[in-house]
């Protein structure tokens, strides 16, 4: 009786180990697939988390979205422009 229970337990353990390995592989595959999806889509318009103006967004610095790149470019331009005006002023002075 005890022997047969032991056999059943071994069989159950074997099946459980097999299932666990399959599930772990599945989870690893899912993680990699989702990671690849996230990375490949991260520069696109769809990767924005909230539909709000970019200015003030804490992610703006690292964001590669076209809209964010535009905002950053504009900010750079305006900074250059203002520094140019300032330096121009100094020259005059």
């Amino acid at each position: 009786m005890i022997q047969s229970m032991q056999k059943t337990k071994n069989r159950r353990d074997f099946l459980r180990d097999g299932m666990r390995t399959v599930l772990l592989s599945g989870l690893a595959f899912t993680g990699l697939f989702l990671g690849w999806k996230g990375y490949s889509n991260s520069g696109k318009e769809s990767s924005c988390l909230v539909d709000l103006p970019c200015r003030g967004c804490s992610r703006l610095r690292d964001c590669r979205e076209p809209k964010a790149l535009d905002v950053k470019q504009k900010e750079r331009d305006s900074r250059l422009q203002s520094s140019g005006m300032n330096s121009g002023g100094d020259d005059v002075r």
Binding site: G31, L34, K37, G38, N41, K44, S46, S47, L49
Partner: peptide
């Protein structure tokens, strides 16, 4: 397929 899922969520 166009949705970019954040790493934290994964």
């Amino acid at each position: 397929p166009a949705y970019a899922i954040p790493l934290t969520v994964i």
